[in-house]
């Protein structure tokens, strides 16, 4: 009989990963242009990480590659979610495993209501887990609960997905979807772009309400101001496809004060 404890004592390097997400030496390109050049990032449950950086540093590419967008080619490295390498998985499988991406530019799907879209998404996830479709009354209850939590007018939910939505409505709709799908890991890609301060506050409050010990959030942003509302545990600075600096939330303030030229001059 071999005990787990024996194995761990014999192989001191062996441990069950304490990280929810581990990105190791990630390289990716789009149309022959190298964008990510060796990203390392580890995120634990309950943490909020911010990724900042100047335009064109690869922030959105990083989120797209983690979510599995096939427009980007991952050339090297690993993406590990709960100890499992997901880098070969289709985007929907990653979603089923709990990855959620809040899009910088959410797309419009005419004729498909927000409710219908969410119903389809939830039931596809359940199907992948071998579960029955969610009964209609349960679905309605969930919708009511989440729309109340995020203070969303339910009339909004019968509109066609993102069609004719204002910038603020689009981002709120993304957060509503996040609430409905209850992901393990949510990546918010430039959620603050195009939002006025009131909309920003509403969206950030929504994210804070959804945060728990069991999930993690990666906030991708150009500016510090969102981080006043969603306070990160760690801040990473991405520049030319690499994380060039990591620190606590104070790093965001330092960046705000000194500007990205400070990073550029150091690298």
């Amino acid at each position: 009989m071999i005990w787990a404890g024996d194995i761990i004592s014999k192989f001191p390097n062996f441990q069950i990963s304490k990280f929810m997400l581990e990105v190791k030496n990630l390289h990716a390109k789009v149309e022959d242009k190298d964008i990510l050049k060796g990203i390392n990032l580890s995120v634990k449950a309950g943490e909020v990480h911010a990724i900042m950086g100047p335009n064109g540093s690869g922030k959105s590419t990083l989120s797209a590659v983690i979510a599995g967008n096939e427009h980007y080619e991952m050339t090297e490295g690993e993406i590990i979610l709960d100890g499992e390498d997901i880098s070969e998985m289709a985007p929907e499988e990653r979603a089923h495993k709990g990855i959620f991406l809040s899009f910088q530019y959410p797309v419009e799907i005419p004729g498909v209501s927000v409710t219908n879209f969410m119903k389809t998404a939830i039931n596809e996830s359940r199907k992948a887990q071998g579960l029955e479709e969610m009964p209609a009354n349960e679905m309605l209850k969930l919708i009511r609960e989440k729309s109340e939590l995020l203070e969303i007018d339910r009339k909004f939910l019968s509109r066609s997905l993102n069609e004719g939505f204002s910038g603020g409505e689009k981002k709120r709709n993304e957060i509503f979807q996040m609430a409905m799908l209850e992901p393990k890991l949510a990546i918010l890609d430039e959620t603050d772009s195009g939002l006025d301060i009131d909309a920003l506050r509403i969206v950030a409050n929504g994210v804070n309400k959804l945060k728990s010990e069991n999930n993690a959030v990666i906030v991708i942003t150009h500016y510090q101001r969102l981080l006043d509302y969603i306070v990160p545990d760690f801040v990473h600075v991405l520049y030319q496809g690499k994380i060039v600096k990591s620190g606590g939330k104070e790093l965001a303030y330092e960046l705000e004060e000194k500007g990205y030229d400070w990073i550029k001059s150091e690298n």
């Binding site: 979510a67 599995g68 967008n69 096939e70 427009h71 289709a90 985007p91 929907e92 979603a95 089923h96 959620f100 991406l101 899009f103 959410p106 797309v107 419009e108 799907i109 879209f117 389809t120 998404a121 939830i122 596809e124 996830s125 992948a128 979807q177 799908l181």
Partner: peptide, 12 residues
């Protein structure tokens, strides 16, 4: 982009 958006929400 529409298809990827759906994929990301778990829809094949």
């Amino acid at each position: 982009d529409q298809v990827f958006y759906c994929n990301q929400r778990g829809i094949p």
